[in-house]
Design a protein around this nucleic acid. Structure first.
Length: 720
RNA sequence: GCUGGUGUAGCUCAGUUGGCAGAGCAGCGCAUUCGUAAUGCGCAGGUCAUCGGUUCGAAUCCGAUCACCAGCUCCA
């Protein structure tokens, strides 16, 4: 902090004009000097592009723009301040509440709060009422700069243990600040609006659990979400938008359009009904054809493997908790006595292998379990206690051998296609002339996801990917990936979809292999993205342990982000499977493997497609392309002729010959999002035509049947 | 898996203090033969998610389980 000097300060405003002040000034003063209206409307200020409080001293020449409700940067500041407003209200309602962190988001804001009992939506009315009172009090919001010690004293006096932890995490040398409004003080970087009187439109939306510091082993806090706008009108608009988004929800449309269903007895697995199946198969066929054109081979490999495969691939060690394990015909059923014996032996081993403190906790848990099999499975899971992966099997080789032999003949459903493709590559000796060897597979995958993560089509336990593995030589990476990204772009453009983000994930701390290899690979990926002219962000250290990756993220209608396409480089799998090819010099060389998917999973992509189109699929994808509607049953004869002609012509057609009035049939057809409704009555029969109503263009009038067939033929053509 | 919420007809939802299970839409039947977003009348449809408990009596109160929803952790 510079001490105020008497040097004049020159302020450049956005219109280029310059104002001179005798000494240090503030945003509030500058706004006041321009006009009383602006001073009143001012929310915060940008100083050389950095958002600051209106009251922040400006002691040096700077470019300044005053932020009002109309400035795009202002909304984030308002919402950030609204978290404080809400937190203050919660504190008045529940004085013992402990605050953690409360940032603004794209949609609004949230605050993680610890209360006993937890806050529920039933508390919202009370909290909002208090918020309104605080608005009425129009408390000035003041910034306080604190030393680290003062900050510690201030927040420990209030028992705010989460805030104390935040203080410790502020880097040395950074300014520590807090904001005060009335009795409420919150540790915060700011900036904030000048007074609590400014809030006009806010609403609490939902509560959800959130782990402290994002770690499942820590305290669980209540995340209270809300949103805020400058005007009631904007808030109402936002709420209406959320309503609209709900109508596009693929779970709702999937049921209404009879695309798929789910059942309690198959959680996380989809029943594809006739119409959904038509679309699914079409997407799958198109993807197969595209891959064939792009030089891929397509294979179809087993679903069920002896676990030996996954031992070799590493999945058994790293992914076992997410795999469905199946006893084979020759695996021995575990006898009750064996289970009891193993449980006892494992417990004895655990007592020495597990660190004392954790073992005490575990022992208390163990004591609550009454059956031997419950104790055994608890002990087997113990390897994850404390987030460490020490494995009890390794500490107790005797038990290990017994368990393994019992597991002989045990199978597992594949969670990924890569291991089988390694076997395909290894099936015979490979030459450099075959590379890049691209193997495509739409096999069925099973992942035993935790129950709480399942939802709709976006997260399921059984699914297919448009998966492929490309085996290539190190020097082929850049060209191949460049080509691949361009292909991915092409496919998404065909659907009119754009990526919300693209991430390049780089070397993590626990990487395997040579640093130089990683550097070269990361550089190659980066060059490939740039060659395609795409924006991307680097996710430093977020790569898989076996190689760097590129993730393509799209957004659904509820603004949630989903990873769809992915490209991953892998140096480990070829090594584990001992893959090699003969190079130009007649030497063995190890190939690099690229894992890639364009849609990602068909299921997730399908869900996103439904929401993207709001159920109004393009004609080539729509499960029903046309429906023939009769004005009355007098025209059933000609209508049947039209219907038969359509079907023979390869149009996916339906008929509605019911005794309803035409308005009602139109409504039904519209609701089912059928691209073309063909009305047939006296006039059409006489002129051998159909009265066409398009889902997107409305009424088109009578068209001869031949002309309509020509029109729909064009639209049916597959376009990737 | 964790936190919170929800579960009533195929769908959307009522159901008061614990006292006979309700509506609209969809379905079926009959009538209507109609020109671009809902024709009328009638009928049928329920293990109130499941299991257990409290009670003279439970959709309603309590507990457990299952599923779903909003998130978290994870992830295509």
């Amino acid at each position: 902090m510079t001490v105020a000097s008497s040097q004049p300060v020159q302020i450049t405003l956005p219109d280029g004009s310059v104002k001179t002040f005798d000494g240090p000034t503030t945003g509030a003063q500058i706004a006041g000097s321009i006009g009383a209206g602006l001073a009143k409307a001012a929310v915060a200020v940008l100083v050389d592009g950095v958002p600051k409080d209106l009251s922040a001293p400006i002691a040096k020449d700077a470019a300044v723009s005053i932020l009002t409700a109309k400035s795009p940067e202002a909304l984030e500041i308002l919402r950030h301040s609204c978290t404080h407003l809400m937190a203050q209200a919660v504190k008045r309602l529940r004085p013992n509440a402990l605050l953690e962190d409360g940032p603004p988001t794209e949609e609004g804001f949230w605050y993680d709060i610890k209360t006993e009992p937890p806050l529920t939506p039933e508390d919202f009315d009370a909290i909002e009422k208090i918020m309104a009172e605080i608005v009425k009090e129009a408390l000035p919001i003041e910034r306080i700069v604190l030393s680290r010690d003062d900050a510690r004293t201030l927040f420990s006096a209030r028992g705010e243990k989460y805030k104390l932890d935040l203080i410790e995490r502020i880097p040395e040398g950074d300014t520590i600040s807090a904001y005060k409004q009335g009795e409420f003080v919150d540790l915060c970087r700011g900036p904030h609006v000048p007074t609590t009187g400014i809030f006009k439109a806010f609403k609490l939306m939902s509560v959800a659990g959130a782990y402290w510091k994002g770690d499942a082993r820590n305290d669980q806090l209540t995340r209270v979400k809300g949103t805020a706008f400058f005007t009631e009108k904007e808030l109402a608009g936002h709420l209406q938008m959320l309503e609209e988004a709900k109508k596009r929800d693929h779970r709702k449309l999937g049921r209404e359009l009879e695309l798929f269903m789910h059942h309690d007895w198959a959680p996380g697995e989809t029943f594809w009904l006739n119409k959904g199946n038509l679309m699914y198969k079409q997407l799958s066929r198109m993807m197969s054809e595209l891959c064939r054109e792009e030089g891929y081979e397509e294979v179809f490999t087993p679903m069920l493997f002896k676990v030996d495969l996954f031992r070799m691939s590493g999945h058994w060690d790293h992914y076992r908790d997410n795999m469905f394990v199946v006893p084979g015909q020759d695996s021995r059923t575990l006898e009750a006595a064996d289970i009891a014996q193993w449980a006892a032996r494992l417990e004895a081993e655990a007592a020495t292998a597990v660190p004392a403190e954790e073992w005490n906790t575990a022992k208390a848990e163990l004591a609550k379990l009454t059956t031997a099999s419950a104790r055994l499975s608890f002990l087997l899971k113990l390897k994850q206690v404390g987030g460490k992966h020490w494995n009890l099997f390794e500490k107790a080789p005797g038990v290990f051998v017994t368990m393994e032999s019992a597991a002989n003949g045990t199978y597992a459903l594949k969670p990924m296609n890569c291991p089988s493709h390694m076997l395909v590559f290894r099936d015979r000796r490979r030459s450099y002339r075959e590379l890049p060897l691209r193997i495509h597979d739409q096999g069925v995958l099973h992942r035993n996801e935790a129950s709480g993560t399942l939802g709709g089509l976006t997260r399921v336990r059984q699914f297919c990917q448009d998966d492929a593995h490309i085996f290539l030589a190190q020097e082929q990476i850049e060209q191949e990936i460049t080509q691949l990204i361009s292909l991915i772009k092409r496919v998404y453009t065909a659907f009119g979809m754009e990526f919300a983000r693209v991430f390049l994930s780089t070397r993590p701390d626990d990487f395997l292999g040579e640093k130089e290899t990683w550097d070269r690979a990361e550089k190659a990926l980066e060059n490939s993205i740039r060659a395609n002219g795409m924006e991307f962000k680097i996710n430093a250290g977020d790569g898989a342990f076996y190689g760097p990756k590129i993730d393509f993220i799209v957004r659904d209608c509820l603004n949630r982000e989903w990873q769809t396409a992915t490209i991953q480089l892998d140096y480990q799998l070829p090594a584990r499977f001992g893959l090699k090819f003969v190079n130009r010099n007649n030497e063995d060389e190890q190939p690099v493997v690229v894992h890639r998917a364009i849609f990602g999973s068909f299921e997730r992509f399908f869900g996103i497609l439904i929401e993207h189109f709001g159920g109004n699929f393009p004609t080539w994808l729509a499960p029903v392309q046309a429906r023939v509607l009769t004005i009355s049953d007098k025209y059933e004869g000609y209508a049947t002729e039209v219907f038969d002609t359509l079907r023979r012509h390869g149009v996916r057609a339906e008929r509605d010959f019911s005794a309803e009035k035409i308005g009602s049939k139109i409504r039904d057809g519209r609701n089912m999002r059928i691209p073309y409704l063909l009305v047939v009555g006296e006039k059409e029969e006489a002129s051998r035509s159909v009265a066409v109503r398009s889902q997107t263009e409305g009424e088109l009038g009578a068209i001869s049947l031949d002309d309509f067939l020509a029109r729909i033929d064009k639209e049916k053509a597959i376009r990737f």
